[in-house]
């Protein structure tokens, strides 16, 4: 697996809020993987393309996902510390971590291309969280596109997409 360093211009993540999961799958396929250790520190998260909400008109989805960027959403983003990380809640400083994962580079279970893989199969997590599988690629300098998949007994289900941008 070869992972290349790429620089991309700065990208406004909000331009993706109207995209459907299928559209984001296409975009995700074109994105380059991250270099080893590229994600380090605290990143602000923005959620969108949540499973089941694709039936809403684009403008409504856009509105809803913008609302989820305000104080009403306790999820603020993610923290990366070497091979491990956690979701951060209530404060962007990352002082309240929960939902832990281990980080490694591997080929995507969805499209076979290299990704940074986040596995929630960690003892500290509640059992219900353990089948969560995250995949991350680089969208532009300092902005990453990621998706959260859920491993059921039969298949991998795409739950949502989110972007991470560096705030530390």
């Amino acid at each position: 697996m070869t992972v290349v360093a790429q620089t991309l211009g700065s990208f406004n993540p909000n331009s993706l809020l109207k995209h459907s999961q299928k559209e984001l799958d296409e975009l995700f396929k074109t994105l380059p993987a991250l270099t080893e250790g590229e994600l380090e520190g605290v990143y602000r998260g923005r959620l969108f393309a949540i499973m089941g909400l694709g039936i809403l008109p684009r403008f409504l989805r856009n509105l809803l996902y913008r609302l989820l960027q305000t104080f009403i959403n306790p999820w603020k983003g993610k923290r990366f510390d070497g091979d491990n990380g956690a979701n951060i809640w209530f404060s962007k400083r990352g002082t309240l971590p929960y939902g832990f994962y281990s980080i490694n580079s591997q080929d995507s279970a969805v499209d076979g291309e290299p990704v940074t893989h986040l596995s929630y199969d960690v003892d500290k997590n509640l059992r219900i969280l353990r089948p969560v599988r995250g995949e991350t690629r680089k969208l532009s300098d300092g902005v990453y596109l990621a998706r959260m998949n859920y491993q059921t007994r039969k298949k991998l289900v795409r739950v949502l997409y989110f972007t991470l941008d560096n705030i530390s």
Binding site: V4, Q6, L8, G9, F11, S15, S140
Partner: peptide, 9 residues
């Protein structure tokens, strides 16, 4: 709708 440059090695 948009053109995005990607600089590889």
């Amino acid at each position: 709708l948009g053109i995005y440059r990607i600089d590889g090695p």
